[in-house]
Nucleic acid binder design. Structure first.
Lengths: 138, 138
DNA sequence: ATTAGCTGTTACCTAAAGGTTAGCGGGTAA
DNA sequence: TTACCCGCTAACCTTTAGGTAACAGCTAAT
């Protein structure tokens, strides 16, 4: 063997930079508190504005409205206005949203195990261990 | 068959709520612009403060410092201060960080395909299609 | 006729995240 | 001695996210 199969420090750095940039691109598109949540709610059948507001607990009308616009602009959803009577407005996922399934699955699984870990940590340590921060796992 | 294998609307809603809450928990812990980035950089061998600052492009010392503190507080990393000479400070991932690998992988793969899609969309549409927003894929 | 609900929009405001600049204490190299 | 790296920290400021509340146009119900 001469040099195959070993990565130089430079190769490591480049691989790392590439990974960082792809993750940054992903976070730019779907980062923030609400975008994934709205897509998840829509994937489970919620189509109407008020349905979404009820399902995605904590979101305000103003924020829901602006997030829906961004999601539409970015090709994740479409807004459909029926000409019938009464006029009804429905939001629908475009196929592109389904490319997020793997991400949603991974985040959900991790979130579940993380919640369990936090709960374990809280009960195993006494009521007042350290002036930590963070638990919040509703 | 009587009712097996069909989900009621209520079951759908509950499943959706559970999914939303697990994703919300995950985002609470690792959301934001920098936490995952720092963990990725550390997983590729960066241990020193300045190394991290160079690898994670765009982060400022102030923010890096505070994010490292949070990551330590939450059990993702440890700060190791050598007693030797000169005193060196190294940050290391704890095993818990590795539970994020699936999430990082999924985000990275999605980010790559998303970047490709944006580029395709930009070239297929003429130079000035719509007053869109968003591309940014550095 | 009044009221209430749906689907938003607008204006206004606060809070949190994050950037900039400066500097400090300790080391090391010229 | 001077000067520069490292690992921060403090003060300050800008930007962004997001909340509240009011309202508009429509329909359905009372």
């Amino acid at each position: 063997m001469k040099k195959e199969n070993r990565k130089s420090a430079k190769e490591f750095t480049e691989e790392c930079t590439a990974l960082l940039s792809s993750v940054a691109d992903a976070l730019y598109a779907i980062g923030g508190k609400w975008k994934l949540m709205i897509i998840i709610a829509m994937a489970r059948g919620n189509k109407r504005f008020t349905e979404l507001q009820k399902q995605v607990t904590g979101i305000s009308a103003r924020v829901l409205s602006s997030e829906l616009k961004e999601l539409e602009l970015n090709g994740f959803i479409v807004k459909k206005v029926s000409v019938g009577y009464p006029v009804t407005i429905e939001y629908e996922l475009l196929p592109y949203s389904h490319t997020l399934e793997e991400v949603v699955g991974a985040l959900s699984r991790w979130g579940i195990q993380h919640r369990d870990k936090i709960r374990r940590d809280m009960t195993s340590a006494g009521p007042s261990e350290k002036p930590n921060k963070l638990p919040k796992v509703k």
